[in-house]
Design a protein around this nucleic acid. Structure first.
Length: 365
DNA sequence: CCTTATGATTGGCC
DNA sequence: GGCCAATCATAAGG
Protein backbone atom coordinates (compact mmCIF):
# COMPACT_ATOMS: atom_id res chain seq x y z
CA UNK A 1 0.00 0.00 0.00
CA UNK A 2 2.91 2.20 0.67
CA UNK A 3 4.71 1.05 -2.46
CA UNK A 4 2.08 1.80 -5.06
CA UNK A 5 1.85 5.53 -4.96
CA UNK A 6 5.60 5.84 -5.04
CA UNK A 7 5.82 3.70 -8.12
CA UNK A 8 2.98 5.60 -9.71
CA UNK A 9 4.67 8.79 -8.78
CA UNK A 10 7.98 7.92 -10.28
CA UNK A 11 6.25 6.65 -13.40
CA UNK A 12 4.50 9.97 -13.83
CA UNK A 13 7.79 11.67 -13.27
CA UNK A 14 9.40 9.72 -16.08
CA UNK A 15 6.45 10.37 -18.34
CA UNK A 16 6.68 14.09 -17.67
CA UNK A 17 10.38 14.38 -18.14
CA UNK A 18 9.94 17.61 -20.05
CA UNK A 19 7.78 19.16 -17.40
CA UNK A 20 9.18 22.51 -16.27
CA UNK A 21 8.38 21.72 -12.66
CA UNK A 22 10.63 18.68 -12.62
CA UNK A 23 13.61 20.30 -14.29
CA UNK A 24 13.28 23.18 -11.97
CA UNK A 25 13.50 20.85 -9.02
CA UNK A 26 16.53 19.16 -10.50
CA UNK A 27 18.32 22.41 -11.08
CA UNK A 28 17.53 23.76 -7.67
CA UNK A 29 19.06 20.73 -6.10
CA UNK A 30 17.99 21.63 -2.61
CA UNK A 31 14.65 23.07 -1.56
CA UNK A 32 11.13 21.63 -1.31
CA UNK A 33 10.40 18.38 0.47
CA UNK A 34 8.86 16.92 -2.70
CA UNK A 35 12.08 17.23 -4.66
CA UNK A 36 14.07 15.89 -1.77
CA UNK A 37 11.87 12.84 -1.54
CA UNK A 38 12.30 12.01 -5.23
CA UNK A 39 15.99 12.54 -5.01
CA UNK A 40 16.04 10.27 -2.05
CA UNK A 41 14.24 7.61 -4.11
CA UNK A 42 16.73 7.79 -6.96
CA UNK A 43 19.57 7.71 -4.47
CA UNK A 44 18.06 4.64 -2.91
CA UNK A 45 17.69 2.88 -6.23
CA UNK A 46 21.25 3.72 -7.21
CA UNK A 47 22.46 2.50 -3.87
CA UNK A 48 20.55 -0.69 -4.32
CA UNK A 49 22.01 -1.23 -7.77
CA UNK A 50 25.52 -0.60 -6.49
CA UNK A 51 25.18 -3.02 -3.66
CA UNK A 52 23.19 -5.62 -5.53
CA UNK A 53 26.11 -8.00 -5.66
CA UNK A 54 26.50 -7.79 -1.90
CA UNK A 55 23.00 -9.06 -1.39
CA UNK A 56 22.49 -12.67 -0.57
CA UNK A 57 20.84 -14.79 -3.19
CA UNK A 58 17.76 -15.29 -1.08
CA UNK A 59 17.44 -11.60 -0.52
CA UNK A 60 17.74 -10.91 -4.24
CA UNK A 61 15.26 -13.60 -5.09
CA UNK A 62 12.84 -12.20 -2.57
CA UNK A 63 13.21 -8.72 -4.01
CA UNK A 64 12.75 -10.04 -7.51
CA UNK A 65 9.71 -11.95 -6.48
CA UNK A 66 8.26 -8.93 -4.79
CA UNK A 67 8.85 -6.92 -7.93
CA UNK A 68 7.25 -9.54 -10.13
CA UNK A 69 4.24 -9.75 -7.92
CA UNK A 70 3.62 -6.08 -7.90
CA UNK A 71 0.15 -5.15 -9.10
CA UNK A 72 1.34 -2.54 -11.53
CA UNK A 73 4.09 -4.65 -12.94
CA UNK A 74 2.26 -6.09 -15.97
CA UNK A 75 0.96 -2.71 -17.05
CA UNK A 76 4.30 -1.03 -16.67
CA UNK A 77 5.98 -3.91 -18.39
CA UNK A 78 3.64 -3.62 -21.36
CA UNK A 79 4.27 0.08 -21.63
CA UNK A 80 8.01 -0.49 -21.60
CA UNK A 81 7.70 -3.20 -24.22
CA UNK A 82 5.64 -0.93 -26.39
CA UNK A 83 8.09 1.94 -26.13
CA UNK A 84 10.97 -0.37 -26.86
CA UNK A 85 9.29 -1.88 -29.85
CA UNK A 86 8.44 1.53 -31.27
CA UNK A 87 11.92 2.89 -30.86
CA UNK A 88 14.10 -0.10 -31.58
CA UNK A 89 12.25 -2.70 -33.58
CA UNK A 90 10.61 -0.31 -35.97
CA UNK A 91 13.98 0.96 -37.07
CA UNK A 92 15.42 -2.41 -37.93
CA UNK A 93 12.20 -4.21 -38.68
CA UNK A 94 12.03 -2.94 -42.23
CA UNK A 95 14.95 -4.81 -43.74
CA UNK A 96 14.22 -8.09 -42.01
CA UNK A 97 13.05 -9.88 -45.13
CA UNK A 98 16.20 -11.39 -46.61
CA UNK A 99 16.01 -12.64 -50.16
CA UNK A 100 16.96 -16.26 -50.76
CA UNK A 101 20.73 -16.21 -51.11
CA UNK A 102 21.77 -16.96 -54.68
CA UNK A 103 25.13 -18.29 -53.58
CA UNK A 104 23.51 -20.63 -51.09
CA UNK A 105 21.11 -21.82 -53.75
CA UNK A 106 23.97 -22.54 -56.11
CA UNK A 107 25.75 -24.55 -53.46
CA UNK A 108 22.57 -26.43 -52.61
CA UNK A 109 21.93 -27.23 -56.24
CA UNK A 110 25.44 -28.45 -56.76
CA UNK A 111 25.40 -30.62 -53.67
CA UNK A 112 22.12 -32.06 -54.80
CA UNK A 113 23.41 -32.66 -58.31
CA UNK A 114 26.51 -34.37 -57.00
CA UNK A 115 24.40 -36.62 -54.83
CA UNK A 116 25.87 -35.26 -51.61
CA UNK A 117 22.86 -33.61 -50.04
CA UNK A 118 20.04 -35.49 -51.76
CA UNK A 119 18.59 -38.84 -50.80
CA UNK A 120 20.97 -41.79 -50.70
CA UNK A 121 21.30 -43.48 -54.03
CA UNK A 122 23.67 -45.79 -55.83
CA UNK A 123 26.61 -43.46 -56.07
CA UNK A 124 24.90 -40.35 -57.41
CA UNK A 125 23.32 -40.71 -60.81
CA UNK A 126 24.41 -37.32 -62.07
CA UNK A 127 28.02 -37.94 -61.19
CA UNK A 128 27.86 -41.42 -62.64
CA UNK A 129 26.39 -40.04 -65.85
CA UNK A 130 29.06 -37.38 -66.00
CA UNK A 131 31.67 -40.02 -65.48
CA UNK A 132 30.22 -42.15 -68.23
CA UNK A 133 30.16 -39.16 -70.54
CA UNK A 134 33.71 -38.26 -69.65
CA UNK A 135 34.88 -41.75 -70.49
CA UNK A 136 33.44 -41.35 -73.95
CA UNK A 137 30.65 -43.79 -73.33
CA UNK A 138 33.09 -46.66 -73.39
CA UNK A 139 32.85 -47.50 -69.71
CA UNK A 140 33.56 -50.99 -68.38
CA UNK A 141 37.35 -50.62 -68.19
CA UNK A 142 37.30 -47.88 -65.56
CA UNK A 143 34.67 -49.25 -63.22
CA UNK A 144 37.34 -49.67 -60.55
CA UNK A 145 38.06 -45.97 -60.72
CA UNK A 146 34.38 -45.24 -60.48
CA UNK A 147 33.95 -47.31 -57.37
CA UNK A 148 36.94 -45.52 -55.88
CA UNK A 149 35.31 -42.25 -56.81
CA UNK A 150 32.01 -43.32 -55.33
CA UNK A 151 33.69 -44.41 -52.12
CA UNK A 152 35.39 -41.05 -51.78
CA UNK A 153 32.18 -39.23 -52.60
CA UNK A 154 30.22 -41.14 -49.99
CA UNK A 155 32.97 -40.32 -47.52
CA UNK A 156 32.50 -36.64 -48.25
CA UNK A 157 28.78 -37.16 -48.04
CA UNK A 158 29.06 -38.77 -44.64
CA UNK A 159 31.28 -36.04 -43.26
CA UNK A 160 28.94 -33.45 -44.65
CA UNK A 161 25.92 -35.00 -43.03
CA UNK A 162 27.48 -35.53 -39.61
CA UNK A 163 28.78 -31.97 -39.63
CA UNK A 164 25.42 -30.66 -40.71
CA UNK A 165 23.72 -32.62 -37.97
CA UNK A 166 26.19 -31.28 -35.44
CA UNK A 167 25.53 -27.73 -36.55
CA UNK A 168 21.80 -28.21 -36.42
CA UNK A 169 21.99 -29.70 -32.97
CA UNK A 170 24.22 -26.92 -31.73
CA UNK A 171 21.93 -24.35 -33.29
CA UNK A 172 18.88 -25.85 -31.64
CA UNK A 173 20.59 -26.12 -28.29
CA UNK A 174 21.81 -22.58 -28.45
CA UNK A 175 18.45 -21.30 -29.59
CA UNK A 176 16.53 -22.97 -26.79
CA UNK A 177 19.15 -21.82 -24.33
CA UNK A 178 18.87 -18.23 -25.44
CA UNK A 179 15.10 -18.44 -25.58
CA UNK A 180 14.91 -19.77 -22.08
CA UNK A 181 17.28 -17.12 -20.90
CA UNK A 182 15.27 -14.36 -22.56
CA UNK A 183 12.00 -15.77 -21.31
CA UNK A 184 13.39 -15.85 -17.85
CA UNK A 185 14.69 -12.32 -18.16
CA UNK A 186 11.48 -11.14 -19.78
CA UNK A 187 9.89 -11.42 -16.37
CA UNK A 188 12.05 -8.58 -15.13
CA UNK A 189 13.20 -6.89 -18.29
CA UNK A 190 10.99 -5.53 -21.03
CA UNK A 191 11.56 -8.25 -23.62
CA UNK A 192 8.69 -8.85 -25.98
CA UNK A 193 8.05 -12.15 -27.74
CA UNK A 194 8.79 -10.37 -30.98
CA UNK A 195 12.24 -9.54 -29.71
CA UNK A 196 12.85 -13.14 -28.76
CA UNK A 197 11.78 -14.10 -32.24
CA UNK A 198 14.21 -11.61 -33.64
CA UNK A 199 17.02 -12.96 -31.52
CA UNK A 200 16.20 -16.48 -32.68
CA UNK A 201 16.33 -15.41 -36.29
CA UNK A 202 19.68 -13.73 -35.68
CA UNK A 203 21.02 -16.94 -34.21
CA UNK A 204 19.66 -18.92 -37.11
CA UNK A 205 21.28 -16.57 -39.55
CA UNK A 206 24.62 -16.95 -37.81
CA UNK A 207 24.34 -20.69 -37.89
CA UNK A 208 23.23 -20.76 -41.48
CA UNK A 209 26.29 -18.77 -42.43
CA UNK A 210 28.37 -21.43 -40.72
CA UNK A 211 26.36 -24.01 -42.61
CA UNK A 212 27.12 -22.20 -45.82
CA UNK A 213 30.81 -22.43 -45.08
CA UNK A 214 30.38 -26.15 -44.62
CA UNK A 215 28.53 -26.40 -47.90
CA UNK A 216 31.19 -24.36 -49.62
CA UNK A 217 34.03 -26.51 -48.40
CA UNK A 218 32.07 -29.64 -49.27
CA UNK A 219 31.56 -28.34 -52.77
CA UNK A 220 35.25 -27.63 -53.04
CA UNK A 221 36.06 -31.15 -51.89
CA UNK A 222 33.69 -32.59 -54.47
CA UNK A 223 35.19 -30.44 -57.19
CA UNK A 224 38.68 -31.55 -56.30
CA UNK A 225 37.53 -35.15 -56.26
CA UNK A 226 35.85 -34.72 -59.59
CA UNK A 227 38.87 -33.11 -61.14
CA UNK A 228 41.05 -35.88 -59.77
CA UNK A 229 38.88 -38.75 -60.92
CA UNK A 230 36.65 -37.53 -63.66
CA UNK A 231 38.48 -34.71 -65.38
CA UNK A 232 37.81 -35.62 -68.95
CA UNK A 233 41.12 -34.26 -70.07
CA UNK A 234 43.05 -36.46 -67.68
CA UNK A 235 40.90 -39.48 -68.38
CA UNK A 236 40.58 -39.08 -72.10
CA UNK A 237 39.23 -42.10 -73.87
CA UNK A 238 39.07 -42.49 -77.60
CA UNK A 239 35.61 -42.96 -78.98
CA UNK A 240 34.91 -46.45 -80.10
CA UNK A 241 35.47 -47.36 -83.72
CA UNK A 242 31.82 -47.33 -84.64
CA UNK A 243 31.28 -43.84 -83.24
CA UNK A 244 34.33 -42.54 -85.10
CA UNK A 245 33.05 -44.09 -88.30
CA UNK A 246 29.63 -42.51 -87.92
CA UNK A 247 31.21 -39.12 -87.29
CA UNK A 248 33.66 -39.47 -90.15
CA UNK A 249 30.93 -40.58 -92.47
CA UNK A 250 28.95 -37.47 -91.72
CA UNK A 251 32.01 -35.27 -91.97
CA UNK A 252 33.15 -36.53 -95.35
CA UNK A 253 29.69 -36.68 -96.82
CA UNK A 254 29.23 -33.05 -95.83
CA UNK A 255 32.75 -31.98 -96.64
CA UNK A 256 31.60 -28.85 -98.45
CA UNK A 257 29.84 -27.70 -95.30
CA UNK A 258 30.86 -29.84 -92.34
CA UNK A 259 28.73 -27.98 -89.84
CA UNK A 260 26.01 -30.20 -88.49
CA UNK A 261 22.90 -28.45 -87.25
CA UNK A 262 21.85 -28.78 -83.64
CA UNK A 263 19.42 -31.51 -84.62
CA UNK A 264 22.05 -33.35 -86.64
CA UNK A 265 24.43 -33.13 -83.69
CA UNK A 266 21.80 -34.60 -81.42
CA UNK A 267 21.17 -37.38 -83.88
CA UNK A 268 24.89 -38.13 -84.17
CA UNK A 269 25.29 -37.97 -80.41
CA UNK A 270 22.54 -40.51 -79.99
CA UNK A 271 23.96 -42.79 -82.65
CA UNK A 272 27.47 -42.61 -81.20
CA UNK A 273 26.39 -42.75 -77.54
CA UNK A 274 28.27 -39.54 -76.75
CA UNK A 275 27.15 -36.10 -75.73
CA UNK A 276 26.24 -33.29 -78.09
CA UNK A 277 29.18 -31.24 -76.87
CA UNK A 278 31.46 -34.17 -77.65
CA UNK A 279 30.06 -34.17 -81.15
CA UNK A 280 30.75 -30.44 -81.36
CA UNK A 281 34.27 -30.96 -80.07
CA UNK A 282 34.84 -33.71 -82.56
CA UNK A 283 33.69 -31.62 -85.49
CA UNK A 284 35.69 -28.66 -84.28
CA UNK A 285 38.82 -30.73 -84.04
CA UNK A 286 38.13 -32.50 -87.29
CA UNK A 287 37.54 -29.35 -89.29
CA UNK A 288 40.67 -27.66 -88.05
CA UNK A 289 42.84 -30.71 -88.47
CA UNK A 290 41.48 -31.52 -91.87
CA UNK A 291 42.01 -27.97 -93.03
CA UNK A 292 45.54 -27.92 -91.69
CA UNK A 293 46.60 -31.00 -93.57
CA UNK A 294 44.17 -32.03 -96.26
CA UNK A 295 46.75 -34.32 -97.82
CA UNK A 296 47.02 -36.38 -94.71
CA UNK A 297 43.28 -36.97 -94.62
CA UNK A 298 42.93 -37.62 -98.35
CA UNK A 299 42.98 -41.35 -98.00
CA UNK A 300 40.42 -41.26 -95.27
CA UNK A 301 38.29 -38.87 -97.27
CA UNK A 302 38.40 -41.20 -100.26
CA UNK A 303 37.43 -44.16 -98.21
CA UNK A 304 34.43 -42.50 -96.63
CA UNK A 305 33.40 -41.02 -99.96
CA UNK A 306 33.53 -44.51 -101.36
CA UNK A 307 31.38 -45.79 -98.58
CA UNK A 308 28.86 -43.10 -99.19
CA UNK A 309 28.82 -43.91 -102.85
CA UNK A 310 28.39 -47.58 -102.08
CA UNK A 311 25.60 -46.83 -99.69
CA UNK A 312 23.91 -44.77 -102.33
CA UNK A 313 24.39 -47.59 -104.81
CA UNK A 314 23.03 -50.08 -102.33
CA UNK A 315 20.09 -47.91 -101.56
CA UNK A 316 19.19 -47.42 -105.19
CA UNK A 317 19.65 -51.07 -106.14
CA UNK A 318 17.99 -52.68 -103.17
CA UNK A 319 15.51 -50.00 -102.27
CA UNK A 320 15.41 -49.24 -98.60
CA UNK A 321 17.77 -51.30 -96.50
CA UNK A 322 16.98 -52.06 -92.94
CA UNK A 323 20.33 -53.38 -91.81
CA UNK A 324 23.05 -50.84 -91.14
CA UNK A 325 23.49 -49.09 -94.46
CA UNK A 326 26.59 -47.31 -93.20
CA UNK A 327 28.87 -50.33 -93.29
CA UNK A 328 27.50 -52.99 -95.57
CA UNK A 329 29.27 -56.19 -94.75
CA UNK A 330 29.43 -57.28 -98.32
CA UNK A 331 31.77 -54.44 -99.29
CA UNK A 332 35.46 -54.33 -98.60
CA UNK A 333 37.49 -51.15 -98.62
CA UNK A 334 41.07 -50.72 -99.66
CA UNK A 335 43.38 -47.91 -100.49
CA UNK A 336 46.67 -47.79 -102.28
CA UNK A 337 49.71 -45.61 -101.95
CA UNK A 338 48.69 -43.39 -104.85
CA UNK A 339 45.75 -42.06 -102.95
CA UNK A 340 43.24 -44.27 -104.68
CA UNK A 341 40.63 -46.09 -102.72
CA UNK A 342 38.91 -49.22 -103.82
CA UNK A 343 35.85 -50.90 -102.61
CA UNK A 344 34.88 -54.30 -103.83
CA UNK A 345 31.62 -56.07 -103.49
CA UNK A 346 32.31 -59.65 -102.59
CA UNK A 347 29.37 -61.12 -104.50
CA UNK A 348 29.50 -59.00 -107.55
CA UNK A 349 32.03 -57.79 -110.01
CA UNK A 350 31.73 -54.11 -109.18
CA UNK A 351 34.35 -52.03 -107.71
CA UNK A 352 34.82 -48.38 -107.13
CA UNK A 353 37.99 -46.47 -107.76
CA UNK A 354 38.05 -43.19 -106.06
CA UNK A 355 40.33 -40.27 -105.67
CA UNK A 356 40.08 -36.78 -104.25
CA UNK A 357 36.77 -37.36 -102.72
CA UNK A 358 35.03 -38.16 -105.98
CA UNK A 359 34.27 -41.37 -107.84
CA UNK A 360 36.73 -41.70 -110.66
CA UNK A 361 35.72 -45.06 -111.96
CA UNK A 362 32.89 -47.36 -111.35
CA UNK A 363 33.46 -50.41 -113.46
CA UNK A 364 33.22 -54.11 -113.77
CA UNK A 365 36.20 -56.14 -112.81
C1' DC B 1 60.52 -43.90 -74.58
C1' DC B 2 59.40 -41.17 -78.32
C1' DT B 3 56.03 -39.87 -81.73
C1' DT B 4 51.57 -39.46 -83.36
C1' DA B 5 46.60 -39.40 -82.68
C1' DT B 6 42.87 -37.59 -80.42
C1' DG B 7 39.38 -35.70 -77.17
C1' DA B 8 38.95 -31.65 -74.23
C1' DT B 9 39.86 -26.93 -72.81
C1' DT B 10 40.76 -22.12 -73.28
C1' DG B 11 40.88 -17.51 -75.09
C1' DG B 12 39.73 -14.56 -78.68
C1' DC B 13 36.71 -13.30 -82.43
C1' DC B 14 32.41 -12.35 -84.59
C1' DG C 1 26.73 -18.83 -78.36
C1' DG C 2 29.24 -21.01 -82.02
C1' DC C 3 33.54 -21.27 -84.18
C1' DC C 4 38.60 -21.21 -84.71
C1' DA C 5 43.21 -21.78 -83.27
C1' DA C 6 46.36 -23.04 -80.02
C1' DT C 7 47.25 -25.89 -76.42
C1' DC C 8 46.90 -29.51 -72.97
C1' DA C 9 46.92 -34.19 -71.54
C1' DT C 10 46.29 -38.71 -72.32
C1' DA C 11 45.96 -42.97 -75.49
C1' DA C 12 48.02 -45.71 -78.73
C1' DG C 13 51.57 -47.45 -81.62
C1' DG C 14 56.20 -48.52 -82.85
Amino acid sequence: MDDQPRLMHSHTGVGMAGHPGLSQHMQEGTGGTDGDGRKQDIGDILQQIMTITDQSLDEAQARKHALNCHRMKPALFNVLCEIKEKTVLSIRGAQEEEPPDAQLMRLDNMLLAEGVSGPEKGGGSAAAAAAAAASGGAGADNSAEHSDYRAKLSQIRQIYHTELEKYEQACNEFTTHVMNLLREQSRTRPISPKEIERMVSIIHRKFSSIQMQLKQSTCEAVMILRSRFLDARRKRRNFNKQATEILNEYFYSHLSNPYPSEEAKEELAKKCAITVSQVSNWFGNKRIRYKKNIGKFQEEANMYAARTAVNAANASSHGSQANSPSTPNSWCFYSDTNGYSFCVHIFSLFYLRIKSGGVVLFCLL
